[in-house]
Design a protein around this nucleic acid. Structure first.
Lengths: 181, 181, 181, 181
DNA sequence: GATGAATGAGCCTTCATTCAT
DNA sequence: AATGAATGAAGGCTCATTCAT
């Protein structure tokens, strides 16, 4: 009655953050204050559960990033995205770590990964805009996106804040900006 | 026939690359053409096995990178490291993917991680040299190292080669280089 | 069908009597008509299972012995205990042998042993009473108890009955009775 | 070269006393400073090893008891046997405990048990003599022997010495002595 | 919908035993 | 005789999943 799908997912974030992928469904259920059977009522398969967990966290990140003002210069928009992203991660580090774990461990189904990727149009839009400006290094956009994302992860894992956070953004931006002779 | 510890480890790289962390020790042994018992004769624990695997691959990378000429300018040395690193990864992509998987999945013991990190003094030396030149962004060296490593991983995963590989290096170098107004 | 913890334990008595300590949990489960997993659902550990088995049998013996009339002379009470004890053992020899096996083989956890010992206050009371009468040899009561118990085991193992059973009691009683010059 | 069958057995006594039946042959070999293979060179089977261990300890007890003077009165001879028995056990408690463990755990082959029993003619002779005197309770001699042995075990386990040891003997003797109206 | 007992396949690990050296 | 690497069957235990209530 009190417990919904999402409550179970949210409770699992902490648990998996602490104990790693590989926690048993039993422990996940217990940690959520739910019976074994209830877990499987919501998620027919452990794989389904993991994918759902991944998607939920990713969605919360996408929501946190939201949209940026199309009329602003790309770099400003990118900076805004960066700040929101890092803020989101720092506000609940477990969520960020769990996403890294699930993706890095290769336990999320590819379909879930791409479904999640689709949520981040707000981010790709910024890169698109920058690319149109000729601001960016001539490489495939997905590659540039990956380079930036990798740096967000590093920045967050390093728990940067204050000036360091801005410096980190400048580093990321520098890496993808075209440079003139 | 003579099977050594290392033969088992080498054979496991392919298997884990294909089937993910989570392969059973039985499959690992079978894939190496060795009995179940033999695996545990060499590696008392599955954890020991995984750590050993991680270390072996990391060591092979460290060997491939080797040293660079101290008299060369830091950026050149860095480029050399970059090229060797990417070449190593492309010459045996499975090894690279397995390292990402093991580390990303959080299944390697921290001690093994730091033991492996110690092997890469050849890389840190280059950053040290660059830092002394005032060439680098004023951030902790380990952070800069992490930013570069993250970009290597992205580049390798993207299977870049030719000109793109050089561009990717320039991107990484740009991210950590200090910029004047 | 409904299988309880106790059904599994009861079924195990025969099996262990026949095949010795060292029967696999798999065989125990199969013999009880239960799946392997069910066994571990009730007994998290084989050790837990063994302790539970020991306790269950001991408890059944304690129940069989029950209480004796405090107003009777100690020797009569002792005789009654003796008879009930032997009768219990003969009515289900496997139970008796299993207890000897578990205890003698040193596979029962000490805590279980003392927990079981606590069940036999009905027996110790009789010795206490006799001791107060000055009827007993001046030795520590636990020692006298051990001497009697040892003789019960011998008597039961020898499958004595009829007059021999009474003689055996007289022997045991003689061993702990004080003798005048 | 330095290590004989018996050295391995002797070394195993302590180990099994400490760790119970169930020690692996590997540990037994290591504890004896011998290789895995050497153990199986001497004892083709673990069962063979256990039987040999049991026999060796029993033989040492039989030797310690030796013979008693046929012209002495049975009770004196019995007392002598008792004293030597207890002394033997106290001089190396591990040996005694191991015998109890092996026998009690039901891991010794019956043939080994009877082969060992045959070594104790020195003891049975005393009972025979006493029986001929009419000194004993009218029960089968093996039963009386068992009753006495059980009490030795109790006495030894209790680590009795001094006067208590004599009292314990009197108790045992009383249990098997015929009593007149 | 929610529960939790029951399942059984599968996993990691142990260990007696073999055998080439 | 002595060694110890190699074996593989077997064991204890876990866990995702099912299902009757």
């Amino acid at each position: 009655m009190k417990y919904s799908r999402d409550d179970i997912l949210d409770s699992a974030v902490d648990l998996i953050d602490r104990e790693g992928i590989g926690v048993s469904t039993a422990r996940v259920a217990a940690h959520a204050g739910v019976s074994n059977g209830t877990l499987f009522h919501y998620f027919p398969t452990k794989q389904d559960f993991i994918d759902a967990l991944y998607l939920r966290v990713k969605r919360s990140l996408a929501d946190a990033i939201g949209e940026t003002d199309v009329t602003d210069p790309p770099k400003d928009r990118a900076h805004q995205v960066w700040d929101r992203w890092v803020a989101w991660a720092l506000s609940a580090p477990a969520r960020h770590r769990v996403v890294l774990l699930l993706k890095g461990g290769g336990v999320v189904r590819p379909e879930a990964v791409s479904e999640a990727a689709a949520l981040f149009s707000g981010v790709t839009d910024v890169l698109d805009a920058a690319a149109k400006d000729g601001t960016l290094v001539p490489m495939p956009l997905p590659y540039l996106a990956a380079v930036v994302e990798a740096q967000v992860d590093v920045a967050v894992t390093a728990q940067l804040d204050g000036a360091a956070r801005d410096t980190a953004f400048e580093m990321a931006w520098a890496s993808i900006s075209s440079r003139l002779p």
